[in-house]
Design a protein around this nucleic acid. Structure first.
Lengths: 348, 348
DNA sequence: CTGAAAGCGCTAACAT
DNA sequence: ATGTTAGCGCTTTCAG
């Protein structure tokens, strides 16, 4: 029977059964929308549920059905602590979509250098999630370790080599192309590219888009046009990459930075060296993170709907969980060119 | 017995008991660190646990102990969607501290205009949390509705009238004082104040700090020195508040905005009207949100450690949950003056 | 179409 | 100090 834990009456399935004059089994069937329940009983039971304001206990359900109603969300510590709200936004997207699908998201971080043998997130050990969403680049040791638990995995903005999982990815190639096309349209002929962590699939693809468009346009993009040896796509790396690039190539009139953080670093370098943006050099980034709005000049960039990525991931996870079919899907989230003030025609 | 759900062997307490040659009760006692267990058995059991890589199922534990190991985190939709990562940061703080305390955070939003009778977050209905953290201003109907479930509540950056709950608050009065003291020290005598939502306790306190310092310094702060009738502490309101303030008072050489968002709005207004910052008018904000770094000039402000607030909230919640003592505590998180380029001596 | 009953994995009296 | 046992609230065969 429901109990008066302290003050509040919390009805259980038994109370509903009694009120509706049926067995608990019947109530359960109604709750779970089973066929083979007569409309009348269904009505009767639902009325009782309503009346008592009954809601099944998660843990009781979980225990017997081996479904927790939770989805894990894994992020590396690095990404978690990043000041730009990139992954945070994605997380909020999952949160948002999860509510519609009656899930809860359990967020956790792992060490950025997770190694085989390291302790896995508690929610996998305790079997407290039905599936896991992994956002951003993670060590493959993590993935290997997770595989043992055969929980469905969905990746966002990253994917492991093997082609075994559903993924939500930015349309990076298309983004790279749009960025460079925009610069070419403005009349630029010497367009540089700057990247950190060039082995990251997303960055590689942006570079790919860059090369494709230049090739098509018959413009050069040899070694003197790009700097891709920075470790991280962070501001300070953007700064030093800009320095390297401009040291080796004076002709450059526009720079495509692989993300906004690096673009901001580039801007800083240019300002310090009295190079005017966009008069002397145009610059375009990628990601459209919030800070861009307060930059001077406002940064042109390629925009991605971060929350949409999270929503798509939940959608995929939901399909996997509901259909029990492990159909592997890749979702490409579209990108959009945002022209602000950092890109202009070349002045000389 | 543990099962081979699909491939993986998932040990249960029975498996551990068998391996260690004890009863499940004993295993349970060991897990829960009960006294009255001989060192030998403890060792034996722990060895078996290690060996089998056993972890108790959350839901099984939850069902019997009526503890879920989850803490709910409630935010209004408005706050959830705000572009500045203010509440997000607080959330990350709770997330961070929760891990240390073996909790999971379930984040959810409620309509900003939640009314009595509206559907409560699912985690309270399903009894899926042991306590709730509420961040930012929420409708009191929500609080009233939650009270029926008598779950421990902890408030962050807001509190209801009655003095019934533990709270984590910014030291707003001290922040307001520091901001104004800094301006006075620079030589300002005509210092304006701008606020939105002046009935919010935090804003009120910042205003309070402003008045206290001016009073002490023997400077005036009559009606011509402040604008507090804006609804929201947002950029556009900062803009229009600045307009109002400068219309009615031409002497002002410095403005204290109740938060950074409004300060940014003020800056925008000043720029558009060719009023130089800080030469003509100094400006200082409150919050130290990320965007400040890219502002021109960089905004002086009062900084609050957002993550610390989240951490403190979990600490309070943990105390309540572990000690079962409902000792009401208020934690004041300290603030720090950050002088950047938007504050300077008055030039005339 | 509905009910009886077993049991999910764990905890907590109560025995021993 | 440890074991026995009865449930926690729910789902799910299996009978009827």
């Amino acid at each position: 029977m429901g109990k008066r834990a302290t003050e509040v009456f919390v009805p259980t399935i038994k109370d509903v059964a009694k009120t509706a004059n049926v067995s608990t089994a019947t109530v359960s069937l109604v709750i779970n929308n089973h066929e083979r329940i007569s409309p009348e009983t269904r009505l009767k039971v639902n009325k009782a549920i309503e009346e008592l304001n009954y809601h099944p206990f998660r843990s009781a359900r979980g225990l017997v059905s081996q479904k927790t109603g939770n989805i894990g969300f894994i992020l590396t510590e690095d990404h978690f602590l990043r000041s730009e709200p990139f992954y945070t936004r994605i997380f909020l997207g999952t949160e948002f979509a999860a509510r519609e699908n009656e899930f809860y998201i359990l967020l956790t971080t792992i060490p950025s250098d997770f190694k085989a043998g390291d302790r896995l997130p508690r929610f996998v050990l305790e079997r407290n999630v039905d599936g896991i969403i992994i956002a951003g680049k993670v060590p493959c040791d993590l993935i290997t370790a997770l595989e043992k638990y055969n929980l469905p995995l969905v990746f966002i903005d990253y994917y492991p080599e093997n082609n075994k999982y559903s993924e939500v990815l930015i349309d990076n190639i298309s983004g790279g192309k749009k960025a460079v096309q925009c610069l070419i349209k403005l009349g630029h002929k010497d367009i540089g590219f700057i990247a950190g962590d060039i082995h990251h699939p997303s960055i590689k693809d942006r570079f790919q888009g860059y090369k494709m468009v230049l090739e098509e346009a018959g413009l050069s993009y040899d070694l003197n046009y790009y700097v891709t040896d920075e470790d991280n796509p962070a501001r300070e790396n953007g700064y030093s990459a800009a320095k390297k690039l401009l040291k080796k190539n004076e002709k450059i009139t526009a720079i495509f930075a692989c993300n906004d953080a690096m673009a901001i670093g580039v801007m800083q370098y240019l300002k310090e060296n009295k190079i005017k943006i966009p008069d002397d050099i145009s610059i375009i980034g990628f990601d459209n993170v919030e800070a861009d709005l307060s930059l001077d000049p406002p940064l042109s960039t390629i925009s991605v709907e971060k929350t949409d990525m999270g929503i798509e991931a939940i959608r995929l996870m939901n399909e996997i969980l509901k259909n029990k079919v492990k159909t592997i899907k890749k979702v490409l989230v579209p990108v959009e060119l945002i022209c602000r003030k950092s890109t202009e025609q070349p002045k000389n």
